[in-house]
Nucleic acid binder design. Structure first.
Lengths: 330, 330
DNA sequence: TCCACGAATGTTAGCGCTATCATGTTAGCG
DNA sequence: CGCTAACATGATAGCGCTAACATTCGTGGA
């Protein structure tokens, strides 16, 4: 079958452990030996058996990443950031998706830990009891990403309540008073619900007690943004601004507005969240909050790798902040 | 440390191989034994060590997926399709990214095969000699995705030359005669270059020998679409249609047109490729070719799993076709 | 020249599981 | 009631590698 370390060792006239050292601590083999080993590897066409190595050393260079969905750009960007860093450091990413199901998350984690993973990246701070129990007994580094708070180990993200608050404060400062919040499936997307909480806080601070909410049960985001705009225009003539849970919906609304002859921001102002490229290309440009998606991935990966390599990681919880980008839509 | 099969076996009063059988061929253990084993697993908090199992059996339920980029929605959709199918069948996806570098591809494949992977998904039919050599000697199933042709093993995709031809035939049928093709980084994105080939073929068939090409070196796709539109309008007043390499660029152009007061399709027609949701939300709606991205992932996964499980896979090469969607932009 | 010491290499055992073959156990039949 | 076949379980060895310790080698100073 496949050649093994022993085949290489025989070919090179050394012992198998020397070949192993060639791979794992190259500095500890002499130049002359290194060359013999390299020639032997080339000759027999050796490919390392990472499985055997991982079993013997009880560690692997695999890092599972668990996200709720792959349909949401947000997670894609985070994955990109993670992937870049992991790949650059010779770690491999094992990708799992929960579909927002905490039981599925437990199951995935259980399977992944069976790979003697070097660490774990998991989305969010909310887990069920079983997950929590497994992870508390697991003594490898863990990063929980996206939001901030008391976590299992490391934590990298941003403050969604503050983001919602910031946007609504901006809308209030612009003079809008009857502001609706529109999202889709907020029960699943609880980080969007956190932004709604911030939205409510800002309104309350301005003496406005009502915080009308439209929560659509639709997946396709741009379409649901268009729907939300129409719905609110029909049923709430007094509404002067819509604070959308994300840019997809907000851009869907802006594009629908131009079809429907609704003037933005004169008839109604539109705000989003995420800072996707499309927001800069619609007319008027979308006012949004730029979330540090890819950076969350990068920083999470770096902190995890630092922890794995026994280096200092700094603060356990890392707030990457956000930026308000004001466009013509508000 | 972690409890092992032996710990479970001792607790259940059976031998370790019986516990192994409980996991790997549950039908071969008696009901009463099964219950004892389940109780023991629960009691000691056993988590399977997949690494040890894979070493002993020389197979693993890991499937590496190699794509050139994670910045392109196309690959994200394909990954989604793959992930869904793999996860549903208990296989785990190991994600690698080449950045369009064939040498990097070789390196990734070498590493991944070290995981005793059950199969492999790789993007495209173009590989360097080293990759080809490794894969030809590897006797596990492989699927090459996205385009069609003579492959290493299985192959799932669509005909990009035909797609380019189809779109240009449509444009010609609509009466456009001075059609420019605009893409970005076509040297890397050689599938887009294949569509340009189809475009040229269609023009030639209509007796048009010139096929003006604008190949921008820009990454951000919507922006480069806007740039391309401006560039072509300024330098080629006679141009009456732009065939874009993808929907991002095409939509960037449509959105820019509305800012610049360019009427579409009266001043210039715009066509795209991919069938992204945004194309249906811009005004006018984008004429595009819907590529079966997620389906490529699904079918590729199913064929690979069938092959792994020794079931018939049908045709080695599977053409998933494409659909022309005519919008108001042409 | 010899010794001492650090660097380089080797020997041994075992990581936790499954393949293989061997053994025990049950049910069915004459 | 004994025999057999089918089923269920067990004993053993080994997957390919690395950790831990043991040994050898090379070099510089007395």
């Amino acid at each position: 079958m496949q050649p093994t370390l022993n085949d290489v060792a025989r070919e090179a006239g050394v012992s198998s452990i020397t070949v192993s050292r060639y791979f794992n601590s190259p500095d500890s083999v002499r130049e002359a030996t290194r060359l013999k080993v390299e020639a032997a590897i080339e000759k027999v066409g050796y490919v390392r058996n990472l499985i055997a190595g991982s079993l013997a050393s009880a560690t692997s260079r695999v890092i599972p990443v668990i996200v709720p969905s792959l349909s949401n750009v947000v997670f894609i960007d985070v994955i990109k950031g993670l992937q870049d860093e992991f790949e650059a450091h010779g770690y491999q990413m094992l990708l799992g998706k929960t579909d927002y199901d905490l039981a599925r998350e437990t199951q995935l984690i259980r399977t992944f830990l069976g790979w003697s993973a070097a660490g774990l990246v998991v989305t969010g701070l909310r887990h069920d009891a079983a997950t929590r129990q497994i992870l508390e007994h697991w003594n490898q580094p863990i990063v929980e990403i996206m939001e901030l708070g008391e976590g299992l180990d490391l934590n990298v993200g941003m403050d969604h309540v503050a983001a919602g608050r910031t946007m609504t404060e901006h809308l209030l400062a612009r003079g809008y008073r009857d502001i609706h919040f529109a999202g889709a499936e907020l029960d699943r997307d609880y980080r969007a619900a956190m932004r709604y909480t911030g939205h409510r806080e800002a309104l309350a601070a301005a003496g406005i007690e009502e915080a009308p909410l439209l929560d659509l049960p639709v997946r396709q985001q741009m379409t649901s943004g268009a729907q939300a705009l129409e719905r609110i225009r029909d049923q709430h003539l007094e509404c002067d601004a819509i604070h959308f849970a994300n840019d997809d919906m907000a851009c869907g609304a802006i594009l629908a507005a131009s079809r429907l002859g609704i003037r933005i921001p004169d008839d109604i102002a539109i705000a989003g969240f995420n800072g996707l490229p499309i927001g800069e290309h619609v007319t008027p440009q979308l006012t949004t909050i730029i979330s540090p998606r890819e950076q969350i991935g990068r920083v999470a990966a770096r902190k995890l790798l630092a922890r794995i390599q026994g280096e200092p990681v700094g603060e356990l919880s890392h707030d990457l902040g956000f930026t308000l980008r004001v466009g013509g839509s508000t």
